[in-house]
């Protein structure tokens, strides 16, 4: 008898669950804030600034979604999640979305029941060397000693890359990233390899960051992007198209500063649709028609966010590389807005 009661309670909870999942956008509007899972601090991607506000490249995605849904990019509650706690936090509904350097893989997309809204940063393994060395490309590293983390996929990728290019190398393996950095600084190896965003962060922690350079080659795929739970496609669309708006805005030259004037002066039909001058595109997502305008006005386009947080003029100093627009040598390519 008691068991039946518990079972009934469980079924009730499950039904309640589906009901709660159905309208994330409405939930957010009712709550008045977006709850966004971020990292527990990663330079350039998510960290609180001196004023105690979260800032960074991943944080901007959360802010853009809030600007689109609520019209105010500051109405976000940030929940710091660790590598271990991020997925349960999203699954249990404690956060509406995750934007925290998560690699899009088959397992996470399919088995864990998440939906990746796209890729906001194409990361991948790269190399860093001292400028003194005079090396401009990883293909010149024949015969080099390379510092690498032991037992990682990084180590395997390194071996594959050198073999594929018919080059020789001497691996110098370490356990932890701090040890690798110390070994590299002490001159135990010529090159240091790990994910490029990690390399950039390590570089900025070195005594003389300007003396080191991250080489342009990327030898593995780490597509990072925001994700939501399965089961609410409208909400997934909102996040996906928020990301796309940022990319399209850069392609069309819309910036936070000029988007208002572009609104009256533009003749481009796609920009007109984007800014809500033609059609009812916002309404189809359950959002106000000027949602994209708010995103661009409050957060800026993809390129602005990149330059502000991780671009060459920041301490992180990552060149655009593959993360540039498709018509300028990168692979950022948004489906058309029509």
């Amino acid at each position: 008898m008691k068991n039946t009661a518990i079972l009934a309670l469980g079924v009730g909870a499950a039904m309640f669950a589906t009901a709660a999942y159905a309208g994330t956008v409405d939930d957010i509007k009712k709550r008045g804030e977006l709850i966004c899972g971020v990292t527990t601090g990663l330079a350039g991607f998510a960290a609180p600034n001196d004023k105690g506000e979260w800032a960074g490249f991943d944080v901007d995605i959360c802010r853009a979604v809030a600007a689109g849904v609520l019209g105010d990019s500051s109405k976000v509650k940030f929940v710091p999640t660790t590598g271990k706690s991020r997925f349960p936090t999203l699954q249990s509904g404690e956060v509406d979305m995750l934007s925290r350097n998560t690699t899009w893989t088959f397992d996470r997309d399919v088995k864990l029941g998440f939906e990746f809204a796209g890729v906001n940063f194409y990361d991948g393994q790269g190399f860093m060397v001292r400028k003194d060395l005079g090396v401009k490309s990883a293909l010149e590293l024949d015969g080099a000693t390379v510092c690498v983390a032991t037992g990682s996929t990084t180590e395997l990728n390194l071996g594959d890359y050198f073999r594929a290019n018919n080059m020789k190398y001497v691996p110098v393996v370490f356990e932890k990233s701090d040890e690798i950095r110390a070994g590299y600084i002490a001159g135990r190896c010529d090159a240091y390899t790990t994910d490029r965003s990690g390399l950039a962060a390590q570089r900025s922690q070195m005594p003389n960051p300007d003396a080191h350079v991250v080489l342009p080659e990327v030898i593995s795929k780490e597509p990072l992007g925001p994700l939501v739970r399965h089961g609410d496609n409208q909400w997934g669309d909102v996040v996906r198209w928020t990301l796309n708006v940022l990319v399209i805005a850069e392609e069309k030259g819309l910036t936070a500063a000029n988007v208002e004037s572009m609104k009256s002066s533009t003749g481009d039909p796609e920009v007109k649709r984007l800014l809500g001058l033609e059609g009812e595109y916002g309404a189809r997502l359950g959002l106000p028609n000027d949602w994209a305008l708010n995103i661009i006005k409050q957060v800026g386009n993809y390129g602005e966010s990149y330059e502000r947080n991780i671009g060459p003029n920041t301490p992180i100093g990552l060149a655009r590389g593959v993360n540039g627009p498709w018509n300028k040598g990168g692979i950022l390519y948004s489906p058309p807005f029509r």
């Binding site: 350039g44 600034n49 947080n309």
Partner: peptide, 15 residues
Amino acid sequence: LTMVQLAVTDAQWIG
């Protein structure tokens, strides 16, 4: 401790 660790991941204060 977390606040300290968060602060050193701010690009301005990194390292």
